[in-house]
């Protein structure tokens, strides 16, 4: 479904250029959930932003559903690939009602049957029609994230890019959102790329994962290997150990990989 080949993304120019992503390649099959984990600042969000078309300064090759991607994306592409952001507070316009948030993509793509689609979308994410005319400040973090998911799904995409969708939510809401994503995936046969720091979430959601460090993929593994803690790379082992909880001695031993 998704093929990324030798993707490079840099910011800035001349001497101050930052190579945020340094030639990474991966493939995601249709219906699969692919996890991206790794150090913060290692370029995970940058990969998603390049893939979704938010950042045009990339080189390499990317294909989604057999189509090669260019710098500018067509409307059809946006119908195919949608994204959910990390921060549920920043991803909804503070002056738009839920209704407006959900109606806008429909208007852009000239879709009909607006009312029915909005109501279905709200029911699907477990909010119900009562939330339709609320403003974001009248919603909790988890409810906002549900709206963001509804917005991403209302165009009926095949691919959903999830950038830490639950890291700012508390654990019980996280459980609700993860269950919701699993259910929607089952019902609609979606393909996910999930960025997260929480290896337990990866283990729960993903089929395979890639570990990133300093702009590169250092290791790809499947979830059974992750559960058994079988990592071949030192960085991955360190990540795995760190996810077992805070430990003073272990924290001292952590090293920075270049």
């Amino acid at each position: 479904m998704i093929e990324v080949g030798n993707l490079e993304v840099s910011f800035g120019e001349g001497a101050a250029v930052i190579r945020a992503v340094r030639g990474i390649s991966f493939e995601v099959a249709a219906g699969e959930t692919f996890g991206l984990v790794g150090e913060s600042g290692s370029g995970k969000s940058t990969v998603l932003r390049a893939l979704s078309g938010l950042n045009p300064n990339w080189s390499g090759a990317m294909h989604v559903d057999g189509q090669a991607l260019g710098k500018r994306r067509s409307k059809a592409f946006h119908k195919l690939v949608q994204m959910v952001f990390q921060d549920p507070y920043g991803s909804l316009h503070p002056r738009h009602t839920v209704d407006r948030v959900l109606a806008e993509p429909l208007a852009i793509h000239g879709m009909v049957d607006v009312d029915r689609r909005i109501e279905t979308a709200l029911v699907e994410v477990g909010l119900g029609p009562a939330f339709r005319f609320r403003y974001p400040h009248q919603l909790s973090g988890g409810q906002r994230q549900r709206v963001a998911i509804a917005r991403a799904l209302i165009l009926e995409p095949k691919v959903l890019l999830l950038d830490e969708p639950t890291s700012s939510l508390d654990v019980s809401v996280q459980a609700e959102i993860l269950n919701l994503l699993q259910r929607l995936k089952r019902e609609r046969g979606l393909t996910f790329i999930l960025v997260t720091h929480n290896l337990a979430v990866v283990a729960h959601m993903c089929d395979r994962l890639a570990v990133m460090n300093a702009g590169r993929i250092v290791e790809e593994m499947d979830v059974a290997e992750l559960r058994r803690g079988e990592a071949s790379e030192a960085y991955t082992r360190q990540l795995f150990n760190a996810s077992l909880g805070y430990n003073r001695a272990r924290a001292r031993e952590l090293i920075t990989f270049e």
Partner: peptide
Amino acid sequence: SALDVTVSM
């Protein structure tokens, strides 16, 4: 909450 586990440690 937004840090990866090693940096957070």
